Every structure is written in C-alpha cells, then in structure tokens.
Amino acid sequence: MKSVRCISLELLLLLTVVAGALWIVMQVTRHQSSWNPSNIFNYGWLDDTNDDGGPELACDCFAVLQGNALETDKAKILTVTKEFRKRVQVQNFEHLLRAIYAPQNVYCVHVDTKSAASVRAAIEGIVSCFPNVFLVSQPVRVVYGSWSRVQADLNCMADLYNSTTTWKYFINLCGQDFPLKTNLEIVRMLKSLRGDNSMESEKMPGGKIWRVTNVFQVVDGEIKRTGKKKDPPPFNLPILSGKAYIVASRGYVHSVLNDLRIQKLIEWANDTYSPDEFLWATIQRLPGIPGSKWPSQKYDMTDINAIARLVKWQEQEGQQGSLDAVYPECQGNHVRSICVYGVGDLYWLLQHNHLFANKFDMDSDPVAVFCLEKYLRLKALAMIH
C-alpha cells in the first residue's frame, strides 16, 4: 500500500482502506440560513466535481432518488457487471468521514486491534491530516456480541469528554453507517432535542431475556455461555432493550463516566451477551440522567421513532401494504438479518427523519453510497446559497 499523505478531503475516497469502527461527537453550532428544499434539484449533477468519478457516473442519481423504477433497475444491473466491479475500488471509511466531516465537530476513531497493520497505518495517515480527528487512546479487540463493543464506546467517550472542545452531543457510528442528513440539518435536529437524548429504549422482548440471565465469556475469539446464571441487576433496575447506536447529550456521557449507579450496572453487564443492545437503553430511563425519559412504559421509544439510526431488520420486512410489515423488503442483501442497502432502498431511506442509516457496503452496492453522497453534497450547497 502506498504511503498516506495529507490530501484534500475531496480525494479521501481514493485510499483503499477499511476501518473497524468510527465514533464521532457532533458539536452543535449556530448557522443562519434560509432555503427552499426544492432548490436541491436546481443544481446539475455534473456541476459538482467528479474527482471520484468512475462507472457509477453512468447512473441517473436524480431519477434514482426520486424512486424511478427504470433508472433504479439500470443502476442495479450496472453494479453486477464485470467491468464495474473491476473499476470501483473505494471503501466505506473514506466516504463516511468525508460525508460527516466539519471543522467544528470532534471525531474519535476506533480501529479494532485485530485489523491489519496496513489498515491501521492508512487510517493513521488520514487522521493525521485533521486537527479535530484522532484515534482513541485505548483501542480494543472487538468480539461480536461481547462487552468489548461497549468498551470501545466507553474509551472514546472518555477521550472525547476530556478533550478541549466543549461539545454538546455524542453520536457513535460504525464503518457501515452513512448520513441521511447534511451537517447543518443534523445540527438543527440536535438543537430541537433541547438537551434530550434520542435512542431506542423499550421493554425487552421475551426472546432476548437469555442475554441478561446467563453468564458469558470470550473463548478463542468467540463469546460463549459458561453455564452459570447471573445475579439480578443492581438496584433491581429494569433492563430495557435498545440498540448500540445513540444520540446522547454531554450530560448523559458525563453520567456514564461518573454516576456510581451506572458504574455498578457496567460491572454487572460485562459478562452478558450483546450488552450494547441494552446498556444505553437502560441508562436512558434512570432517574436523574440528563436528557433521559421516565421509566414508565409510556415513554418507551422504538428505533423507528429514535433519530439515531434507520435499520431494516429482515423479520420486520414485508410486501407493500402488509399490515404486519414495518418497512418494505430490502433491495440489497442481508447480513446477520440486517439489510445492507441497495440502490433501490434510497427513495425509502430519504422519507425518514433519522440522522444516519445502517448498513451500507461499497463492495456490495457502491452506487447506493455514490448517489446518497451526491445528494447530500448538493443539498448542502443548496442550503448554503
């Protein structure tokens, strides 16, 4: 791999590296601007620079984003052609960082310690180009479903909280996320929360109770049951269900790092299964936590209503018009029952109020990222002018 130099942000995607995960903090700033949403389509798609151009330029992103079935089918066919697969050599991390970067934000990047040395070196090179982007001080080896996923979050939370920037909101991302909103839109939506947090937090389904009633440990790089039962949670706390990805206020993060009740909860949770899918949700309902909600079931929030992340779960997909389906069928493919979005999902994605969506993969459908990236860049221009 060639050595990484500081280059213009527009060219970051030329570096073919893969990141384990990316954690960021968005600092709320004030922007005065008025705009008409229809202005986004007043900009020609070729008015923007095409340094990242390739076979994907053949796609009519304007039509795809409006849900045009014919152009969407053309884009799907393009992504499976041999010539296209051979020429498109871009990766998720560079596109994500380019899409979310703003000088007033602070970015903590966590790279899984089991990543290849060449990957880490490439990411270090990129990070060194920006004064507000840094690698976490204590990276960990992440094992799917284990406590390590939460520990990576905690390490970045601590680094960010101790940074010199007095940021207001924390948003954690993984390398397969991508924004659905421009930075200005994200800032406005965070300000509208008025200090509240936004994350899934609801009663844990019966089918997941085993995750918190059994003791687990990592053996040979995999999480396994030990055969032991867990003691009840501290203070008889109700354990709630949620997701790994959150929008949390600075006060929430301060509590995570310092509240003695949360420290006891963390100690109890570190030998459970997939604690990232209940820890943040449970903390969100603790009395006295900044931006939290009351424990009453009436304050439950689903992932569809929380703005943190838009995800399609395979078991909740269905035909249009189905009374049981939460959303239409995935137009890409599935990994661990989660939709890896295809170009046919873009129209649906942009109808929602979420800040980010998961999952995207440049290897499976780069056109989906290409068109969404174009949309956001041009929308940002329309909001500025």
Results as ranks from 00 to 15, higher is better:
290 P>R: 01
285 R>H: 14
276 D>E: 13
260 L>G: 11
287 P>W: 03
270 N>H: 14
288 G>F: 09
281 A>I: 07
272 T>I: 07
262 I>N: 03
292 S>W: 01
263 Q>S: 13
278 F>M: 08
280 W>A: 02
279 L>D: 02
261 R>K: 05
273 Y>D: 05
282 T>S: 09
265 L>S: 03
262 I>E: 00
285 R>Y: 10
261 R>W: 12
271 D>V: 01
292 S>M: 02
272 T>L: 10
280 W>D: 01
295 P>C: 01
266 I>N: 14
273 Y>H: 13
277 E>C: 11
289 I>K: 07
302 T>G: 15
291 G>A: 05
266 I>S: 11
280 W>H: 01
295 P>W: 04
298 K>A: 11
286 L>G: 05
290 P>N: 04
283 I>E: 00
271 D>W: 09
293 K>A: 10
296 S>A: 06
303 D>H: 11
299 Y>C: 11
279 L>V: 06
267 E>L: 13
262 I>S: 00
293 K>E: 11
303 D>E: 14
280 W>R: 03
292 S>Q: 07
262 I>R: 05
260 L>F: 12
302 T>W: 12
290 P>C: 04
285 R>N: 06
279 L>P: 08
295 P>I: 00
275 P>M: 09
285 R>E: 06
277 E>M: 00
291 G>P: 01
274 S>R: 02
292 S>D: 05
276 D>T: 02
293 K>W: 14
266 I>D: 14
271 D>I: 09
269 A>H: 08
272 T>C: 12
302 T>P: 12
299 Y>E: 10
274 S>F: 08
287 P>Q: 00
264 K>A: 11
298 K>I: 13
291 G>W: 06
304 I>F: 15
303 D>C: 10
263 Q>L: 15
282 T>P: 05
286 L>S: 05
293 K>D: 10
266 I>P: 12
268 W>Y: 08
279 L>I: 11
266 I>G: 10
302 T>R: 12
297 Q>N: 13
286 L>W: 12
299 Y>M: 07
271 D>G: 07
268 W>L: 11
265 L>G: 01
279 L>A: 10
281 A>D: 10
279 L>S: 04
274 S>V: 11
299 Y>K: 11
287 P>F: 09
277 E>D: 10
289 I>T: 04
299 Y>N: 10
282 T>K: 03
294 W>K: 06
276 D>L: 10
275 P>S: 06
295 P>A: 06
289 I>Q: 07
281 A>M: 07
262 I>P: 08
280 W>S: 01
279 L>Y: 08
284 Q>S: 14
297 Q>T: 15
285 R>D: 05
261 R>N: 04
301 M>I: 15
294 W>V: 06
264 K>R: 10
293 K>M: 13
278 F>K: 00
301 M>R: 10
287 P>G: 01
283 I>H: 03
261 R>I: 04
275 P>K: 03
265 L>P: 07
271 D>K: 02
278 F>Q: 01
293 K>L: 15
302 T>F: 13
276 D>V: 08
265 L>V: 01
297 Q>E: 15
273 Y>V: 08
